[in-house]
Amino acid sequence: MKVTKEEVEYIARLAHLEFTAEEALNLAGEFTAILEHFDQLAQEDLSGYGMDTFEKEGLRLREDRVVPFEHFGELFNNTASMAGTAVKIPKVVD
């Protein structure tokens, strides 16, 4: 299945990445080759299988309990820019 440069650019917007025109063209070629290889999955007989055929139990949840968190200061040690307890970023909505 041939992947186009325009499809790559669309996917890049979804993935919050950007590429030059040349990079997008190269990626389109790579994806075409990779997805052609993946197409052999279409030959597999998958009848009789559901998404959870061998799953034994549903999601295991723990008790919803409030536990005091004592490391608030450390949590934001890696944040680039703070204003008090708020993370500083450009306006999200103009």
Binding site: V3, E7, V8, I11, A12, L14, A15, L17, L27, F31, I34, L35, F38, L41, A42, E44, L46, Y49, G50, M51, D52, T53, F54
Partner: peptide, 28 residues
């Protein structure tokens, strides 16, 4: 990019879902 592509609308069934069904086959 590859992951975003196989999850995107129009391709999810052909790629990701098929892969997940094959996963069950492998387990079996």
């Amino acid at each position: 990019m590859l992951g975003t592509y196989v999850l995107s609308s129009g391709y999810y069934d052909a790629y990701y879902k098929k892969a997940m069904l094959f996963r069950q086959k492998v387990r079996g």
